[in-house]
Design a protein around this nucleic acid. Structure first.
Lengths: 132, 132
DNA sequence: CTGCATCCGAAAAGATACTG
DNA sequence: CAGTATCTTTTCGGATGCAG
C-alpha cells in the first residue's frame, strides 16, 4: 500500500535528500525558506507574539498570508499556538524547541545577508550596468 | 533626489532590516531562500556545474526557472558564470566567495531540516489527525 | 481581537516548442 | 548544449464580509 511505503521511508533514517523531486524534506524546506515563513520564524525568535503584533513586526505581510504561514509552520511542528479563551481572545505564537533551532540557522543566514548587502548591491549595479 | 538617498543608505553601515517592507536585504533574502534559489546554491556548493548538470542535480526544476534563478543569483554576486565559446557551448556555474558563505549557512539549515524531518512529519500527522 | 471564507486581478510557476 | 519565447496553470495578495 502506498501509505505504508511512505510511512516506512519516513521512519527510516536519513535517506532524505532535498535534491530529490518528491522528498518530504523539500516540502518542509519550502515552508521554512518561503518569504513569509522565514521572516515569521526570525521574528518569533525574538519572543512571543500575538497575531497582530506579528503582523506589525513582519512589515507588509497580509492577514491572509500570515495566517496561512502560521498554519504551515504550526503543522510542521515549528510554531506553537496558544489560544486563551478570554474576551477579547488572546492568541499567542511562539517557537517550539525545533522551531528555535531552525530560526537560529535562519538568523545566521539573514545576518550574513544583511552584513554583506553592500557587496551584493554593488554586484547588482555592476550586473545591471553590463546588461541593459 | 530619490536615487541619492537610496545610494546613501546603501553605503552606510547596517540600517538594514529584513523586517522592513522595502529593505533591499529582504529582496536579496528572497532570492537566497527562494525554493529553487536555495537548492541551486546548495547544489553549487558541491562544485562546478554545467547548466544541464545542474538541472539534473536539482531534480524537478524547469529550464525556465533554473535560468531565471541563475540570473538572479549571478546578479546578486553569489554565482559566477563562465561561458566558453566552444561548439557545442560550454557554460559553467560556480559559487563566488560570497556565494560560498551563503551556501554554507543554507546547508546548515538544510541539514537540520533533513535531520529533524521525522519529528516534523510526526508533527504534521498529529496536526492533520487533529483537524478535519 | 483573532481569525476564516471568498472573490478577483496580478504575478509567478510550469510545460513545451524553438533558436543559436 | 544552453538557453529564450510562448502559453497555460497555479499561486499570491489585497479587499471585503463575517463569526467567535
Amino acid at each position: 500500500m502506498a501509505t505504508e511505503s511512505i510511512q516506512a521511508i519516513a521512519d527510516e533514517d536519513l535517506p532524505y535528500d532535498v535534491f530529490a523531486r518528491n522528498c518530504p524534506s523539500r516540502h518542509v524546506l519550502k515552508d521554512v525558506t518561503h518569504a513569509w515563513g522565514s521572516l515569521t520564524l526570525a521574528a518569533l525568535q525574538e519572543g512571543t507574539f500575538r497575531f497582530n503584533e506579528l503582523r506589525r513586526r513582519v512589515d507588509g505581510v497580509s492577514e491572509k498570508m500570515l495566517s496561512q504561514t502560521l498554519h504551515a509552520l504550526e503543522r510542521d511542528g515549528l510554531v506553537h499556538r496558544e489560544a486563551q479563551p478570554t474576551n477579547p481572545p488572546r492568541v499567542e505564537y511562539r517557537l517550539t524547541d525545533l522551531g528555535r533551532e531552525v530560526a537560529e540557522r535562519l538568523r545566521a543566514l539573514i545576518e550574513l545577508v544583511e552584513g554583506q548587502l553592500p557587496q551584493m548591491l554593488d554586484a547588482q549595479r555592476a550586473y545591471d550596468a553590463r546588461e541593459v
